[in-house]
Nucleic acid binder design. Structure first.
Lengths: 207, 207
DNA sequence: CATTCAATGTGGTCATTGTACACATCGATG
DNA sequence: CATCGATGTGTACAATGACCACATTGAATG
């Protein structure tokens, strides 16, 4: 019933100490290299220095381990979002959160793909963690948006940021540095939230 | 050097006739049931009624077959987008395209996940097909947007729609019917493209 | 028509993977 | 020290992706 505080290797050789957390660390390290589809449970075990079956003492199966990692990902993303958000104007606050989320995706490509992949969106814990992160964003949006638009804005911004992250991860937007990516995110978010289209009643100056 | 025109089964038992296309059909059928990560090449071969190795005569490896399917998916999505777009006002045209894309995702969940998954975004053909679809959207947007904002709007709308599709596929938005999903897409897209945020110089009526 | 040949499908094989089962080892508790 | 539950190991098996050599075919060639 003791609480383990170490994370890598505590035991005297046979027992690991905190394999449960170490497996997540190993999976994280490998995921950010290989991508979620290619990651094998055995590779995670190897990275952690244990036998292929050791993980099964802590996670029911591979999917459960990955879901746990996705849950951790959502939690960390939520923490980063909470630290961001220096709001001069509403737009700046939204932009800051968008950049924070995109930066997280760029920092942890594998985990991000895992988080928004199929299998993990089924797992209750992951869903709960995702909802928590979304709830935080919802609060921030509620502070700057008209009540009628809050829900649509939340969905829209969340979707927009996810789409941007995906495209940036796939290198489809030509942004090579983090600064370029952030600048692009700011431009796109501001364009989408500002007056993006010429109004029908105005003059449509596009040729 | 002949061109095969049949698609399902032509051969006299041993040779299939057009296995290349039939494999795509089988993969499509299985993908929309099982999801891209779980789909095995052998299952595709079984579904097509051939031996596990037959696919290797037509596709270098599993990833190549899936990339071909993703390419086909982008092409079909592009065709659907071309059929859509009845533009009363600019917003309606964008909304129509957004709904078309989301409907495609809902019609073919597996293929959609494949298209926006990692491995296929690396394949040249898939990238080309994706670029073609995006180019079509870009044209439509160029017709209704100020030149300065075209690029950001394209990226933003594409991202927004992709995010919406993902969330809808994961059943995170509570839309159960196609009509509900379309209505939600319309609301979100219009909210995002309209004046979504209270301007700082205006009064922020949110409580 | 018989031969030949390249395209296409089959069977055999191997390493890797996910996972189940039985066994080994450890730390705490009596 | 003996015991026991928690945790890690080893063995085992089916499924998979992919490679090889071989079989079968239809079409071009004589």
């Amino acid at each position: 019933m003791e609480v383990w505080t170490l994370s890598t290797s505590t035991g005297s050789g046979y027992h690991h100490g905190d394999l449960r957390a170490a497996l997540l660390d190993s999976a994280l390290a490998l995921l950010d290299t290989e991508g979620p589809g290619e990651l094998s449970l055995r590779a995670v075990a190897r990275h952690a220095g244990v036998s292929p079956n050791a993980p099964y003492r802590h996670y029911r199966d591979k999917e459960t381990l990955l879901a746990a990692l996705a849950t951790r990902g959502y939690t960390e993303l939520g923490e980063r979002l909470a630290e961001a958000a220096p709001g001069d104007d509403p737009g700046a606050e939204i932009v800051a959160m968008a950049c924070t989320a995109v930066d997280y995706a760029l920092d942890h490509p594998g985990v991000y793909r895992l988080m928004f992949g199929q299998s993990c969106s089924t797992h209750p814990d992951a869903i709960a963690a995702s909802d928590a992160a979304m709830a935080f964003v919802a609060d921030r949006i509620a502070a700057v948006a008209a009540p009628e638009r809050r829900e649509a804005l939340l969905t829209g911004i969340w979707s927009l940021v996810h789409g941007l992250s995906t495209l940036l991860l796939d290198e489809r937007l030509g942004a090579r540095t983090r600064a370029e990516a952030d600048a692009l995110v700011e431009t796109v978010v501001r364009t989408m939230l500002g007056t993006g289209l010429e109004r029908p009643d105005g003059e449509s100056g596009a040729g």
